[in-house]
Amino acid sequence: MEKIRIGVSMCLMGEPVRYDGQHKHDSYITGTLSQWFEFVPVCPEYELGLGVPRESMRLEGAPENPRLVTNKTKRDLTEPMLAWCSKRVEELVSENLCGFIFKSKSPSSGMERVKVYQKNGMPVNKGRGLFANAFMERFPLLPVEEEGRLHDPGLRINFIERVFTLMRWREMLGGDSTRGGLVKFHERHKYLIMAHSIPHYRELGRIAAELKGRRLPQVQAEYYAKLVEALRLSATVKKHVNVLQHMAGYFKKQLSADEKQELQELIGQYHDGFVPLIVPVTLINHFVRKYGEDYLTGQCYLHPHPAELQLLNHV
């Protein structure tokens, strides 16, 4: 398939653009993810023209509206950086990004918990990098994450799942942007959404069904905003077990007694933490193919992202 375009902090790609002339190469990003993602690198300080190497800087003042100040000379770079950020995020509109991976703790690119120094010289971990903040305000519905958090299996699968869902959403808009296309998209994502939030699934179903008298672009915008809200919620073991049991119900008549017992045992073992999610999902996929269960064949829950990423092997 065509690679998905993702923004990324330039130093994570191995480019020596940090203040000390070094990089923060992340092999998971440049190795594993690069098989499916095409990266658009961004480095605010370097692109602003501050040079490499350069004086280090930090955020100071109010966490909700901090200043960007160099550590030694106390040069205030806030205004030029904000002007650059405003220009850069507009340039990124044409890149058609499906997400962004930021460099953690950076005063320009940190997504959360960036140190903001107070008058007494002590920091509070309540800030956000100036560029990361500008990007997230300009693209509030795009998936974003930091490289450090991608090492957490739950956060990693949540981010990548949202990226691939956005890709499928854009494919629907580009290929079947009709009322029927929206309903089909909702049906395909039924169990994926339920794994995050049943109330959101019900609300999304209402939005997709109540189309009469409303302009389709307005309905699509409302639907996608609510979908993003749903997928940001954690997909817990309890929620996954509920989805797996729903899927098992499709095979009540087809499965033998031994097959039913095997499936229930694996769901129970997943619930108790003895096997990862991939184990019961693989067996359900086997039954889908064996018994030709058409409705489940199209469910994105069973194939939310490439199997080679092995995301379900660790949750």
Rank of each mutant, 00 (worst) to 15 (best):
T165F: 03
L204K: 08
L231T: 01
C98S: 12
D272M: 14
Q261V: 14
Q22A: 13
K24S: 04
A225G: 12
G213E: 07
L296F: 00
G175L: 13
M57D: 00
C11R: 08
M247W: 03
L302N: 03
L77I: 05
C85D: 06
Q22S: 14
Y191W: 11
S177P: 02
I4F: 06
P153E: 08
K24V: 05
F251V: 01
T30P: 02
L92S: 05
S234F: 12
N71I: 15
P217K: 07
L77H: 05
P199T: 10
L48K: 07
F39C: 03
H23S: 08
Y270R: 01
V163H: 00
E55Q: 05
R206C: 08
N71Q: 15
Q220F: 12
S9W: 02
L142P: 00
M122R: 14
P107D: 11
V279Q: 05
R170S: 04
S108F: 08
K184Q: 05
I193Q: 04
M1D: 10
Y117K: 08
K87H: 09
V89N: 00
S256R: 09
L141Y: 07
N96D: 15
F37N: 00
V42N: 04
G99I: 01
E259F: 08
Q35F: 15
K239P: 04
P199D: 08
P80L: 07
E147G: 03
D294L: 04
R67H: 12
K184T: 06
L255D: 03
H200E: 13
P276Q: 03
N133I: 07
E55V: 09
Y201T: 00
G205C: 05
L82W: 10
G154C: 05
R206A: 14
D20P: 02
I101D: 03
L182K: 01
F185V: 01
E293H: 03
S104N: 12
P107G: 08
L155E: 09
L233V: 14
R138N: 02
G292T: 02
Q220Y: 11
T73E: 11
H186P: 04
V279M: 08
G61W: 06
G148C: 04
P53I: 03
P44K: 03
I267E: 01
G49K: 10
S234C: 10
L277Q: 02
E137D: 11
Y295F: 15
R138L: 06
K226Y: 11
W84H: 12
N120G: 06
S27P: 10
V315D: 12
G180K: 07
M172H: 00
Y301C: 13
L204Q: 10
R113N: 08
L192K: 10
L233S: 12
D272W: 14
M57E: 01
S108Y: 10
E262Q: 12
A230M: 01
V275I: 15
G268T: 09
K74R: 13
V17S: 11
G61M: 05
I4K: 07
L77T: 02
H186Q: 09
E187K: 14
F164T: 01
L155W: 11
M167S: 15
A62I: 15
Y295I: 09
P63K: 13
E171L: 12
G175V: 06
K87D: 12
E308N: 12
Q220E: 13
E222H: 04
Q269A: 15
A235W: 05
K119R: 11
L173Y: 02
E2K: 08
S94M: 06
